[in-house]
């Protein structure tokens, strides 16, 4: 801290833990998390990002109530994660049960032994192969939050298939987006990537470009019954350039070093944030919503 302000690092070395999970076995997944945190530490990572529902697995269905946590110091799972976060910032995916026993798909940012932020997934896909709305409650906050690396926007999978959550977090001050997914691969054709991979990469690169932000996407791998999770985690810089990429369909720990001064250089050239007319957006939204 300098003069009561958070001193922001100039560089951030992060690791994306592109993992497979054991479906419904929190203890086994926690062990895997702790192992990878140790490995990321050896690679000098200051932040490690795990995918959506990394502590539980994805297609939980009736397992949801049996795998839920509270992100607090007295929770046996979070106790260990909070301890690990004293040395390295962590993003983990889990099921949160609130005090009134609603279950959320959640992601927590832990740092210095504290929970800095918890995001509840606000868009629950309930169509096609997805059935999240049947088992989970909808989150109702979209907030950015401060970290030692700057202000961050944390979203989960379908949240960033919609343009509004990244947009709101950008306006709320987020310069770094951390997106987590458990994205089932689909759309096989003659391309060398599945349609889902092509779509997600295109969208994340676009967010990096139009918001002049860093965009980090952590996706999982492995199979749950017939579903395959395609990995391919990415890091884009504020120019929309790819900084790092995980392999498709294979577990990996992918490192990237973000030069946070790139925000300064890109936005000096391209002042999209400065020129964003939020009051115009607000008045037009008011008009549209009052119809």
């Amino acid at each position: 801290m300098i003069d009561g302000k958070i001193q922001i690092a100039m560089k951030l070395t992060l690791a994306i833990a592109q993992i497979n999970t054991v479906l419904g076995d929190v203890e086994a997944n926690l062990d895997m998390h702790l192992g990878l945190i140790a490995e990321a530490k050896k690679g000098d990572a200051e932040l490690i990002i795990f995918p959506e529902l990394s502590l539980t697995g994805y297609v939980l269905q009736d397992l949801v109530p049996t795998v839920a946590q509270q992100p607090t110091d007295d929770d046996p799972v979070f106790k260990q994660l909070l301890k690990a976060s004293r040395d390295m910032d962590l993003v983990v995916g889990f099921v949160e049960e609130d005090s009134r026993h609603r279950f959320y798909i959640a992601a927590a940012y832990l740092s210095g032994g504290k929970v800095m932020h918890v995001h509840h997934k606000v868009y629950l896909p309930t169509y096609g192969l997805f059935d999240e709305g049947r088992f989970f409650a909808w989150g109702d906050h979209i907030r950015a939050f401060d970290t030692r690396f700057g202000r961050i926007g944390l979203l989960i999978c379908e949240d960033f298939w919609h343009a509004s959550p990244p947009y709101l977090q950008w306006l709320d001050g987020a310069d770094i987006f951390l997106f987590t997914s458990a994205s089932p691969g689909r759309g096989l054709n003659e391309h060398e990537k599945l349609d889902t991979a092509r779509w997600v990469e295109r969208v994340n690169q676009t967010y990096a470009s139009i918001f002049t932000n860093f965009v980090v996407h952590a996706n999982r791998v492995g199979y749950e019954d017939g579903l395959n999770f395609w990995g391919g985690s990415t890091v884009y810089d504020p120019n929309g350039e790819l900084l790092a990429k995980g392999p498709y369909h294979e577990a990996a720990l992918t490192f990237a070093t973000l030069d946070l001064n790139q925000l300064h250089r890109t936005r000096a050239r391209l002042p999209l944030l400065r020129d964003e007319r939020t009051h115009l957006v607000q008045s037009e939204l008011n008009r549209i919503l009052s119809k």
Partner: peptide
């Protein structure tokens, strides 16, 4: 109608499965 598939990708996914 294009039923062509990338056989390398298909093979990788199915073997993993």
């Amino acid at each position: 109608i294009n039923l062509k598939i990338n056989t390398d990708l298909t093979r990788k996914i199915l073997i993993g499965f």
